[in-house]
Structure formats: C-alpha cells, structure tokens
C-alpha cells in the first residue's frame, strides 16, 4: 500500500529552489497535501509575495498571482471580492514571509484581518529577511545577530520584535490565528492539521484565518539544518509559543 506520494498539487517534475534544509519546502508540501485532501486545486487562487516565498507559483499547481512586496492580503482581498461579484466563490490564500506580512505589509495584513476578509494568510517566520541575505526583520529576536544588527538586536537601539499571531488574534475580524513549527514529524503533522483548520475557516465563510509558521533559515542563521531545528525547538518556541490564539470556527 502506498502511504506517501508526491502531492498532486505540486507541479510535475518541479524541484524546489530553496536552500538546503529550508522549511519552505515542507510548508509548501503540506499546503499542497491539504489542497489535495480538500479537493481545492481547481478552485484555488494563491497569492505569492516578495522574498523567498515568491516562488510558490513555480511549485504549486494552482492558479497563482504574485503580489507586490507586502500587499498580498490586499491583492487577495481583490481576488476574493471580484470572484464573489460574479458569484463564483474561490478559495484564496496568501503565502508570505514575516517581513512581507508583518513589516512592509502590516497595514494591508492587519486591515484584512480587521475587516474579517474571508481569506487565509500563511506567514513563514524565519526571524530575518532571508532572500536579501539575513537582515534584521520585524521578528528578529532580542540579541539575534543579523547583518544589520551585527552586535545583536537590542531593545534600546533596535526596538522590539512583533508577535504576529498574537497581534492578528486581537483583530475582531480574525476567526482563526495560530502559530506552528516544522522542526520534527510531530510538529509537521500538527501544522498540517492547523493549516487545514485555517483553510476550512475560509471554506465555511467564517472570516480571516491566519497561520504563522516558525521556519528554519539554515543559510542565514549559519547553522546546519539539524541545529536550525534545534534552535526553533529550544529557543524560538519560548519566544514565539506554539498555540492557537484565536479560534471561533466552532462557535
């Protein structure tokens, strides 16, 4: 019995172009699995963004639109509303990094949540700007060494990071907000369950759903894939706890 195969929603013969050990690949893989399980492939419009997450459209075999940096939730709003105007509901989700969602795009992200826009946003949080080579981002942790906080992030000099899933949970229009990680099998399976729940939130017309995924960035963290996962398990989850911060889907 075949217990595992390449998800149908992954493009044939596609090869991920992320760095060695990067969790983006796992995130896209489980999203594809959920799209298959919920039979959403023919009804999905995915919105990719700027940064490492932009390349989603090369791997995911669904209709895909790239948004300008930070604007994915606004673009998703337009997509969702336009199809609704022609009475053709589509499943619309964004795939963004933490810089995209929570820094340059915080206004678009948060207002989509505040409006209760019926879309799902997935945010890969790897605590730095990965594609540009590891600069300090909105989620870089206190003391974190990056190329623009070479002496470590410092609250007096650099200020505080954002806990995105907690902030988004505060918005009235948010119906589901959670943080997950991908550092081991148990967490990957749990992340899949949670993302599926976020997708179902939209499918049931509940409103804005959000999942922040703590992800490794071995290249810029200058750690092996194994040590990157260890860092997430032992350090990052203490700062960014894994939890469901809001869930009204059963209300």
């Amino acid at each position: 019995m075949q217990v595992y195969s390449i998800p149908k929603s992954i493009k044939e013969n596609s090869k991920f172009t992320f760095c060695k050990g990067c969790d983006h690949g796992v995130a896209i893989k489980i999203i594809a699995e959920i799209i298959d399980e919920l039979n959403l492939r023919e009804n999905t419009i995915a919105i990719s963004s700027s940064g490492c997450s932009v390349l989603l459209y090369n791997f995911l075999d669904v209709d895909c639109l790239e948004a300008p940096h930070g604007r994915a939730c606004a673009v998703a709003t337009g997509v969702k509303r336009a199809h609704r105007a022609k009475k053709d509901e589509k499943f619309v989700f964004t795939y963004q990094g933490d810089g995209d969602f929570a820094s340059i795009g915080l206004s678009e992200s948060m207002h989509s949540a505040l409006r209760g826009e019926n879309i799902t946003a997935i945010c890969i949080n790897n605590t730095n700007y990965g594609m540009t080579g590891g600069q300090m981002g909105p989620t870089s942790t206190m003391g974190q060494l990056t190329t623009t906080s070479p002496l470590g992030r410092n609250k007096e000099y650099h200020g505080f990071p954002i806990k995105t899933a907690e902030q988004i949970a505060l918005c009235e229009g948010t119906q589901f907000s959670a943080r997950v990680a991908l550092y081991d099998v148990k967490n990957i399976l749990n992340a899949k369950k949670i993302i599926k729940k976020a997708f179902e939130c939209q499918l049931n017309n509940k409103g804005f759903s959000f999942v922040e995924i703590l992800s490794s960035c071995p290249t810029n963290w200058k750690l092996s894939p194994q040590d990157s996962h260890k860092k997430i398990a032992e350090e990052l989850t203490k700062i960014y706890p894994l939890d469901i911060f809001k869930d009204t889907t059963n209300d």
Binding site: L65, R71, A74, G78, R81, A82, H83, S107, H111
Partner: peptide, 27 residues
C-alpha cells in the same frame, strides 16, 4: 452585490484592484 471596499489606503486600493483585475472583471 458588486465588489466595493473602503480600502485602508491608496496602496491597499490599487493592490485590491490588481488582484481583482486578475479575475478578468472590470476594475
């Protein structure tokens, strides 16, 4: 029952328009 959003900013508005335009609707 058409699509109308009081956007959070002009940046929001034009990007909503970008998304909506991808559907082929007149935006």
């Amino acid at each position: 029952n058409l699509a109308y959003v009081c956007a959070e900013s002009e940046i929001g508005a034009i990007n909503m328009a970008l998304g909506a335009a991808s559907s082929g609707e007149k935006v």
